[in-house]
């Protein structure tokens, strides 16, 4: 498929997410236990899922970079880390906003919150490392190793609520004996997760394309100066 078709699909997804948010806020019924405030789940959980999916994406681009030493993997890794950082921050902020009315605090050093905070710090570290090193093999190796470490944090975040006593609720979607959620809530949540994850991939694709164009301009300019 051509660039414009993919781009059109990405824009359609962005509109679809707005429609899903409209349903999340105004159409779906309130939760029996939490009332209206539970509606933040339709943004918080999909943002978290997207940040985890991007961490695995970063694992893929890092392994590809380490194996092939291709400069293309550098752009892909940077784009994934940037959008992954954005979605991790969104997860932390929406979780904090949800925490205040439900737990009574904006933040607590709970295992789930702390491990997610570590993910944000690791993403930020990856971006700092990328920016502070010159392009080439050294940068591919350093950021590649950090990219692998970032993916290691994801299973720890997921299991944190079962490994340690936490304020954060245990898994309610993927658990033994099936989900504890009402079918209506669960189906809308799954659609929201898929849609926001695809939006995150669209943003990664656009950013990687911009980085590649930037690099091409740089190479062309340097060649002309050299000639």
């Amino acid at each position: 498929m051509s660039f414009s078709i993919w781009n059109g699909l990405g824009r359609l997804l962005l509109v679809a997410v707005l429609y899903l948010w409209y349903q999340s806020i105004f159409v779906l019924p309130p939760d029996i236990h939490q009332g209206e405030v539970y509606r933040i789940i339709y943004l918080h959980v999909p943002a978290a899922f997207a940040s985890f999916a991007l961490a695995f994406g970063l694992l893929g681009t890092s392994l590809y970079g380490l194996a092939t030493k291709s400069p293309g993997s550098e752009f892909a890794s940077k784009a994934v880390a940037e959008i992954g950082f954005l979605f991790t921050l969104l997860t932390l902020v929406t979780g904090s906003i949800w925490g205040k009315p439900t737990w009574g605090v904006w933040w607590t050093w709970d295992a789930r919150l702390t491990t997610t905070f570590i993910l944000a710090v690791l993403y930020a570290g990856h971006l700092l490392l990328w920016s502070s090193l010159p392009p080439g093999l050294g940068r591919i190796k350093s950021t590649g190793i950090l990219g692998i470490l970032i993916a290691v944090d994801v299973p720890i975040i997921y299991k944190s609520v079962t490994w340690w006593r936490t304020l954060h609720q245990p898994p309610s979607m993927m658990r033994e004996g099936g989900s504890t959620m009402a079918p209506e809530i669960l189906s809308h949540l799954i659609v929201s997760i898929v849609a926001l994850t695809l939006v995150s991939l669209y943003l990664v694709w656009r950013r990687a394309d911009n980085l590649k164009t930037e690099w091409m301009i740089e190479v062309k300019t340097l060649n002309q100066l050299g000639a």
Binding site: E36, V37, L43, L86, T94, I97, K100
Partner: peptide
Amino acid sequence: PWPYIASAYGLGFLAI
């Protein structure tokens, strides 16, 4: 709950 819901979705909109 509405100020919390509005803040969360408002920030989500601005970010994405």
